[in-house]
Measured scan of single mutants.
Amino acid sequence: NQASVVANQLIPINTALTLVMMRSEVVTPVGIPADDIPRLVSMQVNRAVPLGTTLMPDMVKGYP
């Protein structure tokens, strides 16, 4: 099973992602692959992302 990117904390709308905000976890449904975490750094979320939420491609501005 492939690990996905999961919010490690509440991420407010328009926040630029940092490594501490994300963790990898095997979840269903599958979200953004954990391998993409380095690419996500400094990209902004377009909505508030609660703790434990799987990051989906449509939540991150400019992804992929």
Rank of each mutant, 00 (worst) to 15 (best):
L19W: 14
P38K: 11
L55W: 02
R47I: 12
V26Q: 13
K61Q: 14
E25D: 14
M22Q: 00
Y63N: 06
L40K: 01
N46Y: 07
T53S: 14
N46L: 13
T18A: 07
M21V: 03
P57D: 06
A48L: 11
S24W: 10
V20S: 14
D36L: 15
G31W: 02
A7F: 02
L19P: 10
N46Q: 08
V41D: 03
G62E: 11
T15P: 00
P64H: 15
Q9T: 11
I11Y: 00
I37V: 08
Q9D: 13
Q44C: 04
L19K: 12
T18F: 03
P50T: 11
V27K: 07
R23G: 07
G62R: 07
N1R: 07
I37G: 04
N1W: 13
V20W: 07
R39G: 12
G62C: 05
V30I: 14
T18Q: 11
G52R: 04
L55S: 00
D35V: 14
V26F: 06
L17P: 02
L17I: 11
R47W: 05
S4P: 00
L51D: 08
Q9N: 07
V5E: 01
T53E: 06
A34V: 09
T28D: 10
M56E: 07
R47M: 13
P33E: 05
R23N: 08
S4H: 02
T15W: 05
D36C: 05
G52D: 10
P29D: 05
V5H: 01
Q9P: 01
L40V: 04
L19V: 09
S42L: 11
M59E: 03
V20P: 12
M22E: 02
P29G: 03
P57I: 06
V45W: 01
S42N: 15
I32W: 03
M22R: 00
L17A: 00
L55A: 02
Q44E: 10
S4Y: 03
L17Y: 02
L17R: 00
D58S: 14
G52T: 03
V20G: 14
R23H: 06
A16K: 14
Q2M: 15
A34R: 06
A3P: 09
A48V: 12
A34N: 06
V49W: 02
L55E: 00
P50E: 15
P38R: 10
M21Y: 06
N8F: 04
V60C: 03
I32A: 02
I13N: 12
